[in-house]
Amino acid sequence: MTAIRRASPTRWSREDRSTFLWAMLFLSPWIIGFVVFTAIPMLWSLFLSFTSYSPLTGNAPLVGLANYQRIPTDPKVTTALWNTMYFTVLFVPLSTILSIFLASLLNRIGNRTSGFFRTAFYLPNITPAVATGTLFILVLANPDGLLNSFLRFFGITGPSWLNDPAWLKPGIVIMMLWSIGGTIVILFAALRNVPAELHEAAEIDGANTFQRFRNVTLPLISGALFFVIIINTIAAIQLFSEVYTIFGGQRQGAVGNDAALFYVMYLFREAFETFRMGYASALAWLLFVIVGIITAIQFRLSKRFVYYENG
């Protein structure tokens, strides 16, 4: 593009104006989309959270802070928050460790062979969430499901993954760990960018495998690691489709009390099954604040732990 000349800081040349109009034309889809599907919905959702709106009546009577005051006294919210936290705290570290382990193995066997394994590991990722849920209804079935048959092979009697409240969430963690292929592929790409000479140098200096991993590999992949941890945490907090398939809709109540009630599932139920959209909007804003705080904490921590090559 030709250089932009300015007659004065306040007056635009004809060319400046033309460029600006073209830019706005190109950006117009996003600007319209941002206003209609992000800005207005956010304000609307905030407004709804102060009403008891229901699409069944069409009325949105203002109720002040009543929805927010109800949240801490709602036992379902406590249960849903606890279940969601339980799942996230179990799933995020396990998925990260397992992904690093598998990505490191892939990185050690050379690129040609690793292609086959990467494809295999990624396959569960392209499986629709509903299909994953359906599959795991069968995998986690007791006593003859795939998992318990596998455990029986080793002489272990597996629990009732889909009915026993104590084993529901570990079962769900296993289901979600099945789809960590995306994380593996990202970490594998990061590992491949670690220069081999650094490892060799460290090895010559007498560093053992663990020391090399801790002091060479880990700092160099910390950026990608941080990325997958944030993404997986946000996704874990918003766990929905897979568990809704198994435990939601008409199957709700088929399973032990509320052991499988997760936050977004409860939010969805309030909004689109009982149509208490005012209360559901308040729940959505609480989720927004929780996700915001957790992401902010993770960004703060990353400043201390993530190594940036260029400063």
Partner: peptide
């Protein structure tokens, strides 16, 4: 394009990346 406010607008694009979809689901 180079135009005033470009970085601000692009920052807004990035900010919406972190917005959980559940917040805007109902409206």
């Amino acid at each position: 394009f180079r135009f005033p406010g470009r970085n601000l607008l692009f920052g807004l694009v990035l900010a919406t990346l972190l917005l959980p979809g559940t917040v805007t689901m109902i409206p």
